[in-house]
Simulated scan of single mutants.
Amino acid sequence: MIVTRPTENWIRLGAVDRSKAIPMMRTDSNGDQIRGRGLVIVNSLTERWGTDLDPWGKQVWGEMRVEDAA
């Protein structure tokens, strides 16, 4: 897990792997399947998400807005 703060108002959480396959959000998962729900969860918890390709693999990331603590 990679955690960064690209701006004062956003936190970015990323997961990396060596695969260059771009993930697709599945909408056909039923309750009995073990796999296929990751991006559905990321989409519901973050305001925006995406995939960055690197020479060694990829990073799937999601960003959340941070509210002012003051």
Results as ranks from 00 to 15, higher is better:
Asn30Gly: 11
Leu53Asp: 00
Thr51Arg: 03
Asp52Cys: 04
Val66Tyr: 05
Gln33Glu: 14
Asp52Val: 05
Gly62His: 03
Gly50Glu: 11
Leu39Asn: 00
Glu67Leu: 08
Asp52Ala: 08
Ala70Met: 04
Asp32Thr: 12
Ala15Cys: 13
Ile41Ala: 03
Asp68Ile: 04
Thr46Ala: 13
Asp17Gln: 10
Glu63Arg: 01
Ala70Arg: 07
Pro6Ala: 13
Val3Asp: 01
Arg12Ser: 10
Leu53Met: 03
Val40Glu: 09
Ile22Lys: 02
Thr4Asn: 10
Gly57Asp: 05
Asn30Gln: 04
Gly38Gln: 12
Leu45Asn: 07
Gly36Glu: 01
Val60Ile: 11
Arg18Lys: 09
Ala70Asn: 07
Gly14Glu: 08
Asn9Tyr: 13
Ile41Tyr: 02
Gln59Thr: 14
Arg37Thr: 14
Thr7Asp: 12
Ala21Arg: 15
Arg65Asp: 04
Arg35Thr: 05
Gln33Met: 13
Trp61Asp: 05
Val3Cys: 00
Ile41His: 04
Met1Leu: 07
Ile22Arg: 04
Glu47Ser: 08
Ile11Val: 15
Arg65Gly: 01
Thr4Gly: 09
Ser29Ala: 14
Gly50Ala: 13
Arg18Pro: 05
Gln33Ser: 11
Gln59Tyr: 06
Ala15Leu: 15
Thr4Phe: 09
Ile2His: 07
Glu63Trp: 06
Asp52Lys: 08
Val42Trp: 01
Leu45Ala: 08
Val60Thr: 04
Arg35Val: 11
Met64Lys: 07
Met64Pro: 02
Thr51Tyr: 01
Gly57Tyr: 00
Trp10Asp: 12
Ser44Met: 03
Pro6Lys: 05
Val16Phe: 15
Ile34Gln: 09
Ile22Phe: 00
Val40Ile: 06
Val40Ser: 10
Arg18Gln: 08
Thr51Gly: 02
Trp61Thr: 02
Val40Leu: 08
Asn43Leu: 02
Thr27Cys: 06
Pro6Thr: 08
Val16Leu: 15
Arg35Phe: 08
Trp10Val: 11
Gln59Phe: 04
Ala70Tyr: 11
Val16Asp: 05
Trp10His: 11
Asn43Val: 01
Trp10Arg: 14
Gln33Asn: 11
Arg5Cys: 13
Asp17Thr: 07
Arg48Thr: 09
Asn9Met: 09
Gly31Ser: 12
Val16Trp: 12
Arg37Phe: 04
Met25Lys: 11
Ile11Glu: 09
Ile34Trp: 12
Val40Pro: 01
Ala21Val: 15
Trp49Cys: 06
Trp56Gln: 05
Val42Asp: 00
Arg12Ala: 12
Met1Cys: 05
Ile11Leu: 15
Arg37Val: 10
Ser29His: 13
Trp61Phe: 10
